[in-house]
Amino acid sequence: NQASVVANQLIPIQTALTLVMMRSEVVTPVGIPAEDIPRLVSMQVNRAVPLGTTLMPDMVKGYA
């Protein structure tokens, strides 16, 4: 099973992502693949992302 990127904390809207905000976890449905974590650093979320939420491509500006 492929690991996805999951929020390690509440990430407020417009926040630039850092490594400490994300973790990898095998979840359903599958979100952004964990191997993309380095690419996500400094990208902004376009909505508030609660703790434990799987990051989906449409939540990160410039990802999809």
Rank of each mutant, 00 (worst) to 15 (best):
P50V: 06
V6I: 12
P29H: 05
N46R: 10
V5R: 00
P38C: 08
T15Q: 08
L17C: 04
P57D: 05
P57W: 14
L55P: 01
N46E: 10
L10K: 09
V5E: 01
V41E: 05
V26T: 09
A7P: 01
V6E: 02
V30T: 12
A3M: 11
I13C: 07
A16T: 12
K61I: 15
V60H: 03
A48Q: 14
G31W: 03
M22N: 02
R39N: 11
T18K: 08
V45S: 04
T18P: 01
M59A: 06
Q9L: 10
P57S: 08
T53L: 09
R39T: 10
V30Q: 14
P50I: 06
T54E: 01
V30P: 15
L19G: 05
T15K: 07
L10R: 13
A7V: 07
P29W: 04
E35H: 13
Q9V: 11
A16P: 15
S4F: 03
L55V: 09
K61A: 08
V26Y: 13
P12N: 09
V41R: 06
V30H: 13
I37G: 03
P38M: 12
A34M: 06
V60K: 02
A16Q: 13
G52V: 03
V26K: 09
I32S: 00
N46S: 13
L40T: 00
N8F: 04
V5I: 14
V27R: 15
S4C: 05
I13H: 11
A3D: 05
V30F: 13
M21G: 02
I11T: 00
I32E: 00
E35A: 15
S42I: 04
N46T: 13
T53N: 14
G52P: 00
L17D: 02
N46F: 09
L10D: 14
Y63Q: 03
P38R: 11
L40V: 04
L55Q: 01
A64S: 14
N1C: 08
G62H: 09
S42P: 01
L55N: 00
M22I: 09
P33D: 05
S24L: 07
A48M: 14
Y63M: 05
T28H: 14
A3K: 13
T53A: 12
P12L: 07
D36Q: 14
E35W: 11
P38Y: 11
D58H: 10
V45H: 02
N8R: 10
I37E: 02
M22F: 08
I11R: 02
T15N: 04
R47D: 07
P33A: 08
G52T: 00
L55E: 00
M22G: 00
A16N: 09
T28V: 11
A48V: 13
I32C: 04
P12G: 06
T54N: 00
R39A: 08
V41Q: 05
N8M: 07
R23F: 04
P29C: 05
I37V: 06
A34R: 05
I13K: 15
Q14V: 06
M21Y: 05
M21F: 04
K61L: 15
L40K: 00
Q2R: 14
L51C: 09
K61T: 15
A7R: 01
M22S: 01
P12R: 09
A3R: 11
V49S: 02
V41T: 05
M56A: 06
V30C: 07
A34T: 07
S24D: 06
T18G: 03
P38K: 13
E25I: 06
N8P: 00
V60Q: 00
V30G: 11
V6H: 01
V20P: 12
L51F: 15
V6T: 05
S42N: 15
L17F: 01
L19A: 08
R39M: 14
I32M: 02
I37Y: 02
V6K: 03
V20N: 12
P12E: 09
S42C: 08
A16M: 15
M59S: 05
Y63C: 05
V20C: 07
I11Q: 00
L55D: 01
I37P: 01
Q2P: 15
A7L: 03
G62D: 14
L55I: 15
T15H: 07
M56E: 06
V20R: 14
V60E: 00
Q2F: 13
L51P: 13
V6L: 08
N1F: 14
I11A: 01
L19Y: 12
V41K: 03
P57N: 05
V41P: 02
A7C: 04
L51I: 13
M43W: 06
A16R: 11
P50C: 06
A64I: 13
P50W: 05
N1T: 13
Q14S: 14
